[in-house]
Computed example of a mutant assay.
Amino acid sequence: ALGHHRYEWLYVTAFVAPATGESHWYVGNGVSKPLFERLLALFAREAGAGPQRTIILMLDGAGWHTEPGLRLPDGLRLVYLPPYTPELQPAEHLWRLVDEPIVNQHFDRLTEIQDRIEQRCRDLEAQPDILRANTLFHWWPQPARPN
């Protein structure tokens, strides 16, 4: 008889501003709309979204990212990419950077991977130049400059 395999997963959620390299990283063990709402609220607080700063998030159409019923904190606006266009999502280009410290490595416990990934996220957050180089596409809107 074949045994049942049980897998454990880690999920990394990253928000990045391509023009500045500002980033916010969250590592968890699941995905759901209620969890995503909590992440959005935490991100909005940490990034200073609100009446004085509106942040536009570009998202894919994953079920837990979509409205209706998704509660948004003040200062956040969502824009959805067309289906099947991950190349347009700047954050998609972060995953190879996140994966670098675990590629071709063996780990006995998920907590070892989680520790390594969390450290990598902290390291990347402190390196906005690397994040800009990987997410700031030539067509990305640039901040308005005064004349």
Results as ranks from 00 to 15, higher is better:
Ala41Trp: 12
Leu42Met: 08
Leu42Val: 11
Leu42Pro: 00
Phe43Thr: 05
Ala44Asp: 01
Ala44Lys: 02
Glu46Asp: 15
Ala47Met: 11
Gly48Val: 07
Gly48Lys: 04
Ala49Ile: 02
Gly50Cys: 13
Gly50Pro: 09
Pro51Val: 11
Arg53Pro: 02
Arg53Tyr: 04
Arg53Met: 03
Thr54Ala: 12
Ile55Tyr: 07
Ile55Val: 13
Ile56Thr: 15
Ile56Cys: 10
Met58Tyr: 05
Met58Glu: 06
Met58Cys: 07
Leu59Pro: 05
Leu59Asp: 13
Leu59His: 11
Asp60Glu: 12
Asp60Met: 08
Asp60Asn: 01
Gly61Phe: 03
Gly61Arg: 11
Gly61Asn: 07
Gly61His: 00
Gly63Thr: 14
Gly63Cys: 04
Trp64Thr: 01
His65Asn: 13
Thr66Met: 14
Thr66Val: 05
Glu67Cys: 10
Pro68Cys: 06
Pro68Gln: 02
Gly69Glu: 04
Leu70Cys: 02
Arg71Cys: 12
Arg71Gly: 04
Arg71Val: 10
Arg71His: 05
Leu72Ile: 15
Leu72Phe: 08
Pro73Trp: 10
Pro73Gln: 08
Pro73Tyr: 02
Asp74Phe: 00
Asp74Met: 09
Asp74Asn: 13
Asp74Tyr: 10
Asp74Gln: 09
Gly75Gln: 11
Leu76Pro: 09
Arg77Trp: 00
Arg77Ala: 02
Leu78Val: 14
Val79Tyr: 14
Tyr80Phe: 14
Leu81Cys: 11
Pro82Glu: 09
Pro83Met: 15
Thr85Leu: 06
Thr85Trp: 01
Glu87Arg: 07
Glu87Thr: 11
Leu88Lys: 14
Gln89Tyr: 07
Pro90Leu: 01
Glu92Gln: 07
His93Thr: 06
Leu94Asp: 10
Arg96Asn: 03
Leu97His: 05
Val98Gly: 02
Val98Trp: 04
Val98Leu: 03
Asp99Ala: 15
Asp99Gly: 11
Pro101Glu: 03
Ile102Trp: 01
Ile102Val: 15
Val103Lys: 06
Asn104Ala: 12
Asn104Gly: 12
His106Met: 14
His106Phe: 15
His106Arg: 15
Leu110Phe: 01
Thr111Asn: 10
Thr111His: 12
Glu112Asn: 12
Glu112Asp: 14
Ile113Asn: 04
Gln114Phe: 09
Gln114Tyr: 08
Gln114Glu: 15
Arg116Thr: 13
Arg116Ala: 08
Arg116Gln: 07
Glu118Tyr: 06
Glu118Ala: 03
Glu118His: 12
Glu118Lys: 14
Gln119Tyr: 01
Arg120Tyr: 04
Arg120Val: 07
Cys121Lys: 00
Leu124Thr: 02
Ala126His: 05
Pro128Asn: 07
Asp129His: 10
Ile130Ser: 04
Ile130Pro: 00
Ile130Asp: 07
Leu131Met: 12
Arg132Tyr: 02
Ala133Ser: 10
Ala133Asp: 08
Ala133Phe: 06
Asn134Gly: 03
Asn134Thr: 06
Asn134Val: 14
Thr135Ile: 04
Leu136Lys: 03
Leu136Met: 07
Phe137His: 06
His138Ser: 10
Trp139Ile: 09
Trp140His: 12
Trp140Asp: 05
Trp140Gly: 05
Pro141Glu: 08
Pro141Ala: 09
Gln142Asn: 15
Gln142Met: 14
Gln142Ala: 14
Gln142Thr: 15
Gln142Pro: 00
Pro143Asp: 01
Pro143Cys: 03
Ala144Ser: 13
Ala144Met: 12
Ala144Leu: 13
Ala144Trp: 13
Pro146Asp: 04
Pro146Trp: 06
Asn147Cys: 15
